[in-house]
């Protein structure tokens, strides 16, 4: 291959940078305008200020929504891990007729538009008498989070050398000892990764929550409501904070999984 940069390479590079710009432009805009002193997002910016962050922290509805979101994310993620990890192990260990079917069903909420899952669960909960609110939201979130926890853990399990389990049995380990001493340490990073991803997905979720929340608000639902009623710059501030937090979480989980490798 020639060392000289050819014309096509330059074109590809320009296109690639343009795409990156397109992907980042809106994010950069939000971050920048969270420091904009005017409440109108005009160009050029009128000056720098931190007041929207102050306003944001005094917006009680927003803070309540944020704590609600964290609460839901933690509970739903815990449930998804507690149900998803042992079941992934069970499916990995066992051969049974409905295995392939189960693997497909569990990811349905991830594949299908959230609105269908949302109204399905809404109709069902209505039928059995569970009203919209925090419980409904947690049930909904756990359902779609299972669709991300299960496949991640299952994939990791299938990458393990099957013989290490037999080796543990061979050395006297019972099923439970083998799970805790051999399997769990080897899927630990996958569990952490799945949990972190679940938390960010849950905090970000709208389509399912939209139908299940009732008067209970989560952060994105609250922001959605605020944007519907005209423009409020503290949204930029809260978005910037979420952005920083979620990128940090992703970088951490990426680091953990790379340490493993």
């Amino acid at each position: 291959m020639s060392k000289k940069k050819s014309g096509s390479t330059i074109i590809v590079a320009i296109l690639a940078v343009a795409v990156l710009l397109f992907l980042y432009l809106p994010i950069i805009v939000v971050v920048l305008y969270s420091f904009n002193s005017s409440s109108i997002s005009s160009f050029p910016m009128s000056g720098l200020t931190l007041k929207w962050y102050v306003v944001m922290f005094h917006n009680e509805a927003l803070i309540t929504a944020l704590t609600n979101s964290i609460e839901v994310a933690v509970i739903a993620t815990t449930l998804a891990i507690v149900i998803g990890v042992p079941s992934a192990y069970g499916v990995y260990k066992l051969k049974f007729r409905w295995k392939k079917f189960l693997e497909k069903v569990v990811i349905i909420p991830m594949m299908l538009p959230g609105i269908i899952t949302g109204i399905s669960i809404l109709s069902f909960l209505q039928m059995v008498g569970i009203i919209q609110g925090v419980l409904a939201v947690i049930l909904g979130h756990t359902t779609f989070l299972l669709g991300t926890v299960f496949p991640q853990i299952y994939t990791r399990l299938r990458q393990l050398d099957r013989n290490i389990e037999e080796a543990s049995t061979d050395l006297g380990g019972t099923g439970i000892q083998t799970f805790f001493y051999v399997i769990l340490p080897n899927i630990k990073t996958a569990i952490i990764g799945a949990a972190l991803l679940s938390v960010t997905l849950s905090i970000d979720e709208i389509p399912v929550t939209f139908f299940l929340n009732g008067v209970f608000t989560t952060l994105p639902i609250q922001i959605y409501g605020m944007t519907r009623n005209g423009f409020t710059p503290e949204i930029n501030a809260i978005c910037t904070i979420i952005l920083v937090a979620s990128v940090a979480v992703i970088l951490i989980s990426n680091k953990i999984s790379r340490e493993e490798a």
Binding site: D161, N163, I164, E166, A167, S168, T169, D170, L171, G172, G173, T174, V182, P185, N186
Partner: peptide
């Protein structure tokens, strides 16, 4: 059961515990 036998195996793939 396999874990109660006084027999041990050396596996073809070694099957060492990667985390230990």
């Amino acid at each position: 059961p396999a874990n109660k036998r006084n027999i041990n195996t050396v596996f073809q793939s070694y099957a060492l515990f990667p985390h230990l």
